[in-house]
Computed example of a mutant assay.
Amino acid sequence: MTEARERISRRSVDKFAQRRAQLAESALQALSELGYARTSLREIAQKSDFSHGVLHYYFADKVELLTYAVRQFEEVCVTRYDDVVAAANSAEDLKRGFGAAMAGTLRADAVMHRLWYDLRNQSLFEESFRADVLDIDEQREAMVWRVVERYAEFAGVPAKVTPPVAYATFDGLFQRALLQHLAGRDSAAEDLEQSVPRLLELLVCAGAPAV
């Protein structure tokens, strides 16, 4: 009887988690369109197939839903450049692949990146966001550093910056390109794709001949 109850309990937990994931995925669209400040659970419900009551059953409030939804998106995003690193056979391959990958995600996922920056900005005011934001930021930093570290190996020199500096530099470049892209500047993604390789070389080689 005990084992049977445990199996039933595990299935209930699994179903609850699956339902939360489905709801979060549905909510991402509304959140990415309207942003945190202009979105309530009721408005999210109106833009999805789920009622306000259902959302409130699975998530205590908008803060919990937003952090869960963004974390779900970031689980995929924080490995987006790993394939580029794995496929590169030279410093040149890595530079071009990294630039193309950053430009690609700018084009494909602009509204989701906008939501991430919205959440990060909100964490300056909402203490309940901060632990999650800091954790996601650390994962993003590690993702960027894997690229920088591999490029340094190809170049045969140690990187001239620390992981936080490398991340902050690429993140700033990407956020600027995102703003330009959202403002309708057609060249934003292409400019980013061209700037990333130059910045990578600068951060690693710092005046050494191009590799």
Rank of each mutant, 00 (worst) to 15 (best):
V54H: 09
H113D: 05
S12V: 14
V78Y: 12
D135F: 08
A87M: 04
V85Y: 08
L94D: 08
G97W: 04
L106H: 06
E6S: 11
L115Y: 10
V63K: 02
L124Q: 09
F73E: 13
K15Q: 13
R7A: 12
S123C: 10
K62P: 13
V147P: 13
A86M: 10
S48V: 03
A17N: 14
I8L: 14
R7K: 11
V84L: 08
V147Q: 08
V84K: 01
A17L: 14
A100K: 14
A87R: 13
G104Y: 01
R107G: 06
D14V: 07
T39Q: 01
L65M: 07
F125K: 14
R42G: 04
M102A: 15
A30S: 13
Q139N: 03
A88Q: 06
F50G: 00
Q29P: 00
A69Q: 01
C77M: 11
S32M: 07
E126G: 01
I8F: 09
S48D: 03
D137F: 04
D83A: 15
L55E: 06
D61C: 04
S12N: 12
Y117S: 05
E127P: 09
K15V: 07
A30Q: 07
Q29I: 13
A91H: 08
A60E: 15
D135S: 14
V144S: 03
A37W: 12
M102T: 00
V54F: 07
R114D: 03
G104C: 00
F129R: 07
K95E: 13
L34T: 14
L34V: 06
K47C: 06
L41Q: 11
Y58A: 09
R10V: 11
L66Q: 07
S51E: 08
R38V: 00
R114G: 04
V78R: 15
A131S: 12
N121Q: 15
C77N: 15
S48E: 03
F50P: 02
L55Q: 04
S32L: 00
L31D: 03
A87Q: 13
